[in-house]
Design a protein around this nucleic acid. Structure first.
Lengths: 249, 249
DNA sequence: CCGGTTTTTGCGATTTTGTGCGAGAATTTA
DNA sequence: TAAATTCTCGCACAAAATCGCAAAAACCGG
């Protein structure tokens, strides 16, 4: 078993169960606990999980992390949110994933907007619910505690039978060669279905996540119609994406 | 159970109930009181709560004093919650409606309980999600903003294809002649479907709502197996229900 | 294909951490 | 004031982490 492979599996387990024990992982993959521990420390260094005595926990336990860059990042996300909102017009059906950037967009929706929002992300749904004129459709299935989103075949089937005008994807990693990538298998399945079920795919991401990759590919770049970051559309960092035929806002 | 995990649970409990007892926490998580005490001291050191003799208090407890009938009603709901929880055992599939009584039950689930909870109520889902060992199935459909629950044909169809062990209904009005009644058409449809899709129907209600009615009937009394109120099962107010063949806790 | 280098992994000895227990002290409660 | 909890403190024990080291595997330039 490859190291990367092992770490991807660990990450998957953490996302699924919110915790992992070094002992049981060592048992499952037949490597020493030392190796597992080293893996966990590496993943903790990359901020993918939280190492604790005896195993590791998912970030969702700490609730409020990154207090330091919070405000800073917030500004960026707000910029992104403003641009995203400008794409929505009355009467549209909008499919959205989860993630903090999407949340920020949800909070920025103008109160007079009348549209239908469809999502399996629970935090996003909570935001949409507060809006006076928006219809909210919740996609049901098993709830993934870590990503706070419904995942599974039911959810995917439901998405498949939709045909939305717009699809907003909160994106964790985007790259010229590898397209958009994720580390959670279930979320990948969902996002793939979302991409297939809408007329226009819009990726929202802060520029730090550009040109980074994660283990599992969601789709190639050419499936994406629009990319929104906090940068000016003319920023040189975005040039390769424009050249790849993506509309950049 | 990991130390951090345990502390996260304690914190969650403190924030919900504003107080925790060392003894009951020790009992719930099957660790010694010593361990709980050490946890409480650590959390108190971090300023997350206030350690007192016998347990701990939430920080907000000092500052804000809440409305008197709030606490009162809360106590009743807590009593109901305790009784309801006692009906659930490991491995069960439990269908629940929404409502504050259900929420209180969700908050009182012992951490080691492993069960699957199915609901379309968004506040309830949020509570279930905090629990370390519970699988959460969210029923999707259009979100009703005022009842914070998914309603519609999709949701009803989904419920119909289930077969749960237990169904908890937060009940707004119960009466000997009219059975249980509601004032929201969509919710009535949902609850009817829930009653048909489980082996055992349990109604949770505070005694004030007994012998009251609302415009739309959900079902006759004979569909209900168990009634839980804050009263003692021997209370004379409950006698007619016992005589009607309902198990009363 | 081959030496040399780097990375990865496992092992044993030692240290640290987490937990429970018992006895006596401190406190709450009746 | 007496009885019942709850706390403190020291200790023991097991599980987990750390450290140094060495074998094994992967990588690489020629």
């Amino acid at each position: 078993m490859l190291k990367k492979e092992r770490q991807a599996y660990i990450l998957h387990q953490v996302n699924l169960h919110n915790k992992v024990l070094s002992a049981s992982l060592s048992n499952e993959m037949k490597v020493s606990e030392d190796t597992i521990r080293r893996d966990l420390y590496e993943l903790a260094d990359e901020g993918k999980l939280i190492k604790v005595h005896g195993g590791a926990l998912s970030h969702s336990f700490n609730e409020v992390h990154f207090p330091s860059n919070g405000v800073y990042s917030q500004n960026k996300k707000n910029k992104i949110a403003q641009k995203a909102v400008s794409l929505i017009s009355n009467g549209m059906f909008v499919l959205t994933s989860g993630g903090t950037t999407i949340l920020e967009m949800a909070r920025s929706l103008p109160p007079q907007l009348k549209a239908t929002f469809i999502s399996g992300s629970i935090p996003a749904i909570l935001e949409y619910m507060h809006h006076p004129n928006i219809e909210v459709i919740l996609i049901g299935d098993k709830v993934s505690k870590n990503s706070k989103i419904t995942v599974g075949l039911e959810a995917i089937a439901k998405i498949r039978q939709m045909q939305a005008d717009l699809c907003f994807l909160g994106t964790n990693a985007i790259d010229l060669q590898h397209g958009i990538t994720e580390n959670d298998w279930d979320v990948v399945q969902l996002k793939r279905a979302m991409i297939e079920s809408c007329k226009k795919v819009v990726c929202l991401t802060i520029s730090e996540k550009m040109n980074t990759t994660q283990p599992i590919q969601i789709c190639e770049l050419n499936k994406i119609h629009t990319l929104i970051t906090e940068l000016e559309p003319t920023d040189p960092k975005l040039k390769p994406y424009v050249e790849a035929g993506i509309e950049v806002l």
